[in-house]
Design a binder for these strands. Sequence first.
DNA 1: CTGTTAGCGCTTTCAG
DNA 2: CTGAAAGCGCTAACAG
Lengths: 331, 331
Amino acid sequence: MGIYKERVTIYEVAKAAGVSLATVSRVINNQSNVRPDTKQKVEETIARLGYKPNALAQGLATNRTTNIGIVIPDVNYVHISNLLSGMIDIGKIYGYQTTLFITKHSKQDTRDVIAKLVTSHVDGAVVFDDELDEEDIANIINYKIPLVVIGRDVIGEKVGCITIDFAKTLAAALKQAAEEGKKIEFVKTASSGNMTSRTYEEVASELKEGSYETITITDSYHETYSSFVDYFKKNKDDNKVFVAPRDSLACAIENAATDLGLKVPENVQVVSVFGTKYSYLARPTISSCDIDMYEVGSIAMRMVTKILKDDLKEKKFPFEAKFTSRGSTKF
Amino acid sequence: MGIYKERVTIYEVAKAAGVSLATVSRVINNQSNVRPDTKQKVEETIARLGYKPNALAQGLATNRTTNIGIVIPDVNYVHISNLLSGMIDIGKIYGYQTTLFITKHSKQDTRDVIAKLVTSHVDGAVVFDDELDEEDIANIINYKIPLVVIGRDVIGEKVGCITIDFAKTLAAALKQAAEEGKKIEFVKTASSGNMTSRTYEEVASELKEGSYETITITDSYHETYSSFVDYFKKNKDDNKVFVAPRDSLACAIENAATDLGLKVPENVQVVSVFGTKYSYLARPTISSCDIDMYEVGSIAMRMVTKILKDDLKEKKFPFEAKFTSRGSTKF
DNA sequence: CTGTTAGCGCTTTCAG
DNA sequence: CTGAAAGCGCTAACAG
């Protein structure tokens, strides 16, 4: 509560109830060794005084905070909200609060954020952030923070991971198109990160040289939309397959095409790597590699709680995306 | 960091650097009264030992945590992500971390969540949650937590608010349609909360009796979509204007209509109260009352920081939605 | 400019 | 079953 000091402390409760601190502490921690009548007496005064324990003091005394840190680049993506949602729901079940650490895609911020994570004394953390490199991860591990990393393959004493594989399923889907002579156009954004790059590279390695290209755009619906409007004005019918990192960008491409009178998927095909809600809201619906990020989040959170109980058997949980063919592609 | 105890403390730094705790404390708090050479010596040992202060201990000692609590019903809505994003960005500028308190639309959880908020000793809080009633708000205020409430009109000693008015702009837009004899259909969801209800009531009060109806649906794109598919199969051409609380639901209605071959806005018109990204991604684009939730979030966060500095002049910040006519309506 | 010391609010032995 | 007392890691007077 910052600033103020008028909050009731355990000491005042003890005095008002005519017992010692220790007894009050036992009551609020639900310890069995308290006589029922004194317990009731204490509970009454707690209620009467509106006493709430100070989690900072508790944390300092017990060396546990029941807080889990979540490191993500941004909250403003649907797949990340889904992930968050899963983590929060499961965290709540196990009695954990969540604190957000947002890196904003910036290397600079990332250092600060990790420092904050360390000082905040969370009981554990889950990271879903391409911006963190091996060294950053190692740093967190150094401080003995139990950790689950999503989207990167690291395991260790108190470290588990969830890997997400888009490449295999995406490659399978694109191969058909490539074999039919379509040109594949990988659309990258400055901030779409290593995961996208790695995926594209892996997919490209399965494609014939010359059957694909990569272009880089700004990570914004509006800018993507207008640059593709320009593009399609000049290239009415080049019959490509565009691969976008997220479905809202795929949607921008699709909208640019259809708004100019091109037909999707007849003249232009679009695929999204990461499929979320936009995939089925858009018209035509967008083919994408789907992954249930809510589930990923809940598994991640379950993994941290297991690490905390020293009970994590499988340190690596591989997730595989599933390609869903929708209206934006012929395959 | 839970469980482990091997972290370096200020005491060890002091010993290693050959100074007292106090000096180390001064250095980490950037106090001026330290001789440059001792300062450097201390900083060196801090770096060498990898010392990071314990925020819990600091918080306990100073009675400030540099943490702001954010109370929301869910993270899985675009307008809420936007809001969060604004709060986080501005919070970061002022050196505040954000802790999430999610009520999940449940009255039960809400009590617990408020208790958590109190025990966690955040320096301040911002609430955007219809689930909290007057009493809950009063409760938070009782514990002297500086507070900014979004979407409800409360002010007080350390309490500011941001009100959001959809009704006026929505009413203006709908009146035209109603006067042309269109029937207005207010679509409500179980969890869309008081804000929506109040808005609908206020709008309805400006409409002629009999010119509108209210229906309640499930708060899910898929369920909304399929129930409207059923609806439109039976009511091919009733020429209504549907008002949905959020644009993804408006999109469900619109998609249901267009997928059945109806024309939007010729046969069916759709408006969304809350416009977000979906409004312009959808085809046809969806007319909506737009509000920049990122901006709301940043203002909210700025307001808390001002309350904390006892420097909040305007305790009430009224926000008014702007109606944007898009492709889903004729008005 | 630097060290000593008394807390911050709570938990946790250890006695009784 | 209950109380006394030490200590978690840090800050903030107060001396010097």
